[in-house]
Computed example of a mutant assay.
Amino acid sequence: MSQAGWLSSLSPAPVLDGLAPPVRGLFQSPQPRRTPRRRLHEGHGQPVLLFPREGTGPESTAPLHRTLQQAGFRPLDWGFGVDQGPRGMGLARWLRKLEDCVIDAFEASQAPVTLLGWGLSGIYARELAKRANPLVRQVITLGTPFNTAADPQRRCRVFALLEAGPERLPLSVRTRLRQRPPVPFTSIYSRHDGVVRWEQCVETETAESENIEVPGARHEELAMHPRALEAITHRLAQPEGRWRPFEGAGLPLS
């Protein structure tokens, strides 16, 4: 065999092609794909569990579901229909119930799962990552008011859905909710949200946590905003164990 042929035989491409999609994705860096209005990064079957916006069900995440699926990821629905908060069940019992979603998603994909929550359900995603840490790869939230310190008068109507039961959440629980989950975390927010104050959506930035502002987007528009989609797909496409902050966006978006 010639030297060129021998080198060709060592090319990683045939080896990677033989791996299952989630495993193959561990070795590849995010690759951008242009569309008319945005830049997406391509996936290799990485699973992502989608939680709907408060007061809505899977119809709110359906466009995002299709976009992620077309980009090569594996989006999964949370399976509980319309999100109306824990209601009389209480937050602790509600989260225990939702843990089954994470377990099922992990077992179906045989890979750690990204949790993506929108508004109120982003709080579920953060808390579930604390409870089921080994099964969760990262958390992404869209317009989620987890920073209770930025709402001392308890005026946030989204967060109020957590307190719809017989008692308000004690201060200890509200304090716990603003503690960062023990996995990489990305908060996507807008100063023009119109439903939650943007200050409530800001996390302390560390080596594994970041905030990404989406200019001009309303709360109900966050999931399909071009900048949000680029950031979400880049987060999902990163190689396992090599999370890095999103540095912005490369080319300007129009």
Rank of each mutant, 00 (worst) to 15 (best):
L10E: 06
P12G: 07
D17L: 13
P21A: 07
P22F: 08
L26W: 15
R34Y: 08
R38A: 15
H41P: 04
G43Y: 05
G43A: 04
V48A: 11
L50G: 10
G55L: 06
T56G: 04
E59L: 10
P63K: 07
L64N: 05
H65M: 05
R66S: 14
R66T: 13
R74T: 15
L76N: 01
G81L: 11
G85K: 07
R87A: 02
M89P: 01
G90C: 05
G90F: 09
G90D: 04
A92Q: 14
W94D: 14
L95F: 09
L98V: 00
D100M: 13
I103F: 08
F106L: 03
Q110R: 15
Q110I: 11
A111R: 11
G117D: 05
G119N: 07
L120Q: 07
S121L: 01
S121Q: 03
G122I: 07
R126C: 10
A129K: 02
K130Q: 06
K130F: 04
A132M: 07
P134V: 02
L135Q: 11
L135M: 12
V136Q: 00
V136S: 00
Q138Y: 06
T141C: 00
P145N: 05
T148S: 13
A149S: 15
A149V: 11
C156W: 02
V158Q: 02
F159K: 04
L162P: 00
P166L: 06
E167H: 12
R176E: 14
Q179T: 09
P184I: 05
I188H: 05
I188N: 03
I188Y: 03
H192C: 11
V196S: 12
W198S: 15
C201M: 12
E203I: 14
T206V: 02
E213T: 02
R218K: 15
L222M: 08
A228K: 04
L229Q: 14
L229V: 00
A237T: 00
A237D: 00
R244H: 09
F246D: 06
A249N: 06
A249D: 07
G250E: 12
P252S: 14
S254Y: 09
